[in-house]
Design a protein around this nucleic acid. Sequence first.
DNA 1: ACCCAGGCGACGA
DNA 2: TCGTCGCATGGG
Length: 279
Amino acid sequence: MRNSEKTGYVLGSAEELNLQKTFECGQCFRWSLGENGVYFGAAGDKCLKIWQEGGQIICNAENGDISFWRNYFDIDTDYDDSLHCFSEPQYLKTCADFGKGIRILRQEPWEALCSFIISQCNNIPRIKKIISTMCSVFGEEIGCGLYSFPRPEKLAALSEGDLAPLRCGYRAAYILNAARAVCEGSLNFEELSTMPSEEAFAEVKKIHGIGDKVANCFMLYGLHRMDRFPIDVWMKRALERHFPKNYDPSVLGPYAGLAQQYIFYYARTSEGRNNFECS
DNA sequence: ACCCAGGCGACGA
DNA sequence: TCGTCGCATGGG
């Protein structure tokens, strides 16, 4: 599996893992496109460089922890298995074809929860900026010029005033509250990951500042619960315009979350006034 | 000036 | 259970 050039490892094919779509579909906020088509970014306290060479995706992990990244990119899941669920309506099929190569990243639970608390009533470039500042101010250096995502223990000890440099407004109180809930044990990621989906959903929503949308995003991206179907303003518009009235996404079964990602990405890309990146 | 952004909680009907 | 509002900030 070892690539002949540099210290790169072959993660998979560009067919099954499309870097541009995966990083820019709105599920994660800490990846950037650098020189020569090389993406660099971080998850938790690990950084990575990753790029396409021919039909293959090659990565270079600073500490060589390849199993972490195979898990992160969900390499062992065959996404084609889900496609038969997305044959109707036609709009969904279009979205799924368009989004082929997107992978639902297995992000660290706290990072996903905190990121999507920040995302509420916010735009993607600004979400990225707030998270980047949060990491550089409260995280540790991890190489590549990047910083780790601050642990809840670190944030729980802070005051709202300490978060002022983030310029995240009213979300600061929600961040601190969630961090404290994690530290006190009232929000336990390991317990949540073993609970039935709806039960875990109700449990997460007990935290002040976490509603339907953030709870679903946390479960989909932070716990890899692929049945969750977050609905934001973009999804709402897409559902109103392109799906039957009172459409029930649970007909998408265990892959509803993946369908949601395809729809969100397609809606933003094809109908979007705003793009994903800063102008 | 006004509107919007991967929302949420409080409040009133 | 439903709609409406303020919340803090920045960009178009």
